[in-house]
Design a protein around this nucleic acid. Structure first.
Length: 871
RNA sequence: GGGCGCGUGGCGGAACUGGUAUACGCGACGGACUUAAAAUCCGUUCCCUUCGGGGUUGCAGGUUCGAGCCCUGCCGCGCCCACCA
């Protein structure tokens, strides 16, 4: 018997697959297709265990579908623009491109050592001008279609990375990469009009039944559709009567627009407030130094969880008042208030203290009237009062003139109707979702193809001049954007009038590149972004695999981008990914020495009693709970080391064995050992049996109607294993599939005897075993398939199907209960006569003992499952 | 504050969507082989038991012939969003 020589076997099959172009993508044809894609990696330099998990999961699916006869597209590429390259440039004085391409080369080598069934001829690299030229063109098309625009706006500014961040990239008031407290700045920015598709992005979620419910809910909340009304409040100087607002009103206008979801509570209004960043507030501040100071203070305040929770509701009274739209002669004081967001609705609200907690806190502080207008069903209109809790529930309207007596829903509609009649508003839908700001003040990104001309404004770079490429000779010695400082790059003639003009020096957010790469893979060398025929055939992606952290970032942007591409005639579909699998994180125990310093797993040694010591000096080590692998806690495992020691198959098997894919996975050394031991066992089973096991058509004595009972049982187990593993793979339940495969190994191992029929059944089992294991552990499976005497490689062999005669049962074990408690089992023919089943059950000794003479009240017979005797 | 999810042996987890709870693996223990160790192989492994059985899916109830699964209320853990009018 030969030894399981991992290194040779894995190297041998990896080069065989490469030479034979085994995983080359077929041309679009008539076969059923399956596009399997994992989120492409950022080329950080080395793969980590998280990569191993995603690419293993995707590879199992791709290999399984290929064996089933699908035309499979399974590509790989690099999300190659981004900040780490620039940081490396600053720290190590290496050009971002050099750094990136070197990292790609190393990571490609590492990924290839995993034995992935990837068509490497379709590699896409987003920092390549041959890639990003297409998105520059797309951007200009979006601009023409009104899906991109430029405006001055308040932005999230990351003071460490010195760039703007999208709302999706601000986590708890901090930059998603730098962790720095985000500041507010006003800048000219390019935006993509993602809000134009808000309804479609929301409504189509219901049809994405291949997506986890969790992700769909997260996107739904993120889009945040709410319906209400827009209300116009005419402005007048209030009783304090100053007149210095004339200038501000003249510039801003003499009315203020407010969005509310509760137009029914308009009669409870006590004040109107605008955001500190509202144009009216800014105009007023020019003549009001105290207001200017208040606004500045608001902008300094962070937006972190803590800041929001502890922040007091504060306002600055403006000296203006708003006329109540319904109640003649009633006016409401106008405030600038710190809790009003410029980014949502119109940046202005009316405050109804009785029915909104924030408004109530504000009203109590500034002593404004609290007038309930919605009375709960169990209270009376005359004594219902508000204390410290606003009432947000349902009820009947009161103190509200024409709305009195209506319920909340009817009152909302009636109020909106009246507003429309008066010309002071109408029903309106508003979204939490905001347009996607894509300008970044960074070098290592795709240049925005725009030229700014003093006379002509923002002029698109003509098609003939695309792509706009990055200059190579840049200087990272100073902070800020090197494109801005480059001596010549930005100075160009205006394409429209020919005068001196300057290039846009901002680059795109890197989520721009990842929003369409899945389409580029369909035809990576096409002169257009993609060949329409190829895209029509391959898209949408059938199974996408990636981390949950992209639930509202990449996955939402890609859905938008696909719609925008469709609107501009690039594509015929709206949804890019029909199936989505979000895999959990990989975790590992943490270790600290006596001084509290973190230790790497290889620095410790397990001793008895679950304790651990330092390898170096046997000093005690504290074992901490398992948490997400991170460099700072040193609880990391390097995939390359694992492959060196055990091989890719062991690593792949371990990573799919223990936990369901969407759940977090605990990386354990003993689990890896277990996978290693299993593969050695598999190796021995096949190599020891292969010589003795005959091949060929089934001999008579193993036929379903002739085989000896134990052989028949074994054959049944083999075919059920095929059926169940297939079912588990279809449902992406890989940990269960692995359990089925191990069970099949046990069945085969328990098959004793060396007669011809037994040998034949053993071979049948081993062949099934190797074929079922193929998607998980492809190298060893190929090798054993050959050992079993097959000339055609496993990667070109069909997926096995179970023999129907062997998976349909003719008898079944039925549980027998008395009053719901198990008292025995019965072997009955499938679909046995109910009366006969009942009689057989009652005849059991255990049943009679449990009844102990009591009368049987009834017997519940669930065919083929259970018989419950009720006494 | 809003939304979503989870809780099963020492551990990871399984249980066909209401029908024999604890599959498969890890760990542990015992044995065989070995001068010895590793590897391998064979057993045992939810708890209690007077060996007849009895109990067990975070806790307390409910629905049902029957509940890990459905409902109600607690307890604990996790994730997402958050002054969103």
């Amino acid at each position: 018997m030969s030894r399981y020589n991992v290194k040779d076997i894995e190297a041998k099959w990896q080069s065989a697959w490469a030479e034979e172009a085994t995983f080359a993508t077929p041309d679009p044809g008539d076969e059923k297709k399956c596009y399997v894609l994992e989120m492409f990696p950022y080329p950080s330099g080395r793969i980590h265990v998280g990569h191993v998990r995603v690419y293993t999961l995707g590879d199992v699916i791709a290999r399984y579908r290929r064996a089933q006869g699908y035309a499979v597209l399974h590509p790989m590429g690099w999300d190659a623009f981004g900040l780490p390259a620039e940081n490396a440039a600053i720290e190590n004085r290496v050009h971002p491109a050099t750094w990136t391409y070197e990292n790609i080369d190393n990571m490609r080598r590492q990924l290839q050592s995993m034995g992935l069934s990837i068509d490497w001829s379709r590699e896409v690299t987003t920092c390549d001008p041959e890639y990003y030229r297409h998105e520059q063109k797309m951007f200009l098309d979006f601009l023409k279609a009104g899906l991109a625009y430029r405006r001055e706006s308040w932005v999230n500014w990351d003071p460490v990375d010195q760039t703007v961040l999208a709302n999706e990239q601000v986590i708890d008031g901090k930059g998603w990469r730098s962790g720095a407290e985000v500041e507010k700045r006003k800048l000219n920015q390019w935006f993509l009009r993602i809000t134009a598709f808000a309804d479609s992005l929301l409504d189509e979620l219901a049809r994405l039944d291949g997506w986890p419910e969790r992700v769909r809910i997260m996107q739904e909340n993120w889009i945040g559709r709410s319906s209400g009304a827009r209300v116009t409040f005419p402005l007048i100087p209030d009783s304090a009567g100053y007149d210095r607002h004339g200038d501000a009103l003249a510039r801003y206008g003499t009315a203020i627009e407010v969005f509310t979801t509760r137009p029914d509570t308009l009669f409870g209004a006590a004040f109107v407030a605008v955001s500190p960043n509202h144009p009216l507030a800014e105009a007023l501040a020019e003549h009001d130094p105290a207001l200017a100071e208040f606004i500045a203070e608001c902008n300094r305040l962070g937006t972190s969880e803590e800041a929001i929770e502890t922040a007091e509701k504060r306002g600055h009274r403006t000296g203006l008042a708003a006329r109540h739209p319904f109640r003649e002669g009633d006016t409401l004081p106008l405030y600038v208030a710190n809790f009003v967001l410029m980014e949502y609705g119109t940046g202005a609200i009316f405050g109804c203290p009785a029915h909104d907690q924030r408004d109530l806190e504000f009203a109590r502080k500034y002593d404004l009237p609290v007038r309930p207008v919605v009375v709960p069903p169990d209270a009376s209109a005359t004594d219902f009062e508000i204390g410290t809790e606003a009432y947000a529930g349902d009820g009947r309207l009161a103190n509200s003139e024409f709305l009195d007596g209506l319920d909340v829903e009817a009152a909302k509609a009636a109020a909106a109707r009246r507003l429309a009649e008066l010309g002071l508003g109408e029903a309106q839908v508003t979204y939490r979702l905001r347009d996607w700001g894509v300008s970044r003040q960074r070098y290592w990104g795709c240049p925005i193809p725009i030229i700014h001309c003093a006379d002509c404004g923002a002029v698109p770079v003509p098609d003939a001049d695309l792509p706009v490429t990055l200059p190579d000779d840049v200087d990272f010695e100073q902070a800020g954007n090197p494109l801005e400082r480059h001596p010549s790059w930005k100075h160009v003639a205006c394409p429209s009038c020919g005068k001196d003009a300057s290039r846009e020096t901002d680059t795109f957010d890197t989520f721009f590149e990842s929003s369409w790469y899945f389409a580029r893979y369909c035809s990576p060398d096409a002169p257009e972004p993609f060949d329409r025929g190829a895209a029509d055939y391959w898209l949408p992606v059938d199974q996408y695999v990636g981390g949950i952290e992209h639930a509202v970032l990449h996955l939402l942007y890609s859905r938008f981008f696909t719609r925008a591409m469709k609107a501009c005639g690039y594509l015929g579909i709206e949804e890019p990914f029909s199936g989505l699998l979000t895999q959990g994180m990989v975790c590992h125990e943490t270790y600290r020495d006596a001084d509290g310093r973190w230790l790497f797993p290889e620095e410790i040694r397990r001793v008895s009693g679950g304790k651990a010591v330092k390898v170096e000096d046997d000093s005690p080590v504290t074992v901490g709970r398992s948490e997400k692998m991170s460099k700072s806690h040193k609880n990391v495992v390097d995939p390359e080391t694992i492959i060196e020691a055990y091989g890719a198959d062991t690593m792949r098997l371990f990573i799919v064995s223990d936990s369901p894919p969407e759940r977090d996975l605990d990386w354990t050394e003993s689990g890896v050992d277990g996978a290693w031991r299993y593969l050695n066992r598999l190796w021995r089973m096949v190599t020891e049996a292969a010589l003795a096991a005959p091949s060929g058509p089934p001999p008579d004595e193993v036929a379903p109607d002739k085989a000896a009972p134990d052989l028949l049982d074994a054959r049944r187990a083999i075919h059920k294993a095929i059926r169940d593993t297939t079912d588990d793979l279809d449902r992406l339940r890989f940990n269960r599939a692995v359990a089925r495969i191990r069970e099949l190994s046990n069945t085969i191992a328990n098959l004793s005897g060396e007669d011809g029929a037994t040998l034949w059944v053993r071979r049948e089992g081993l062949e099934a075993l190797v074929r079922l294991a193929g998607p998980f552990v492809p190298h060893i499976a190929e090798e054993l398939w050959r050992t079993l005497g097959h000339e055609v490689p496993l990667s070109a062999t069909d997926w096995p199907s179970p023999d129907p005669a062997l998976v349909t049962e003719d008898s079944v074990t039925v549980a027998v209960q008395v009053n719901g408690k198990l008292r025995g089992t019965l072997d009955l023919p499938v679909d046995a006569d109910q009366a006969a089943a009942e009689t057989a059950a009652l005849a059991l000794d255990n049943v009679q003992a449990a009844l102990s003479g009591k009368a049987v009240r009834k017997v519940v017979v669930v065919p083929n499952r259970v018989i419950n005797v009720v006494a």
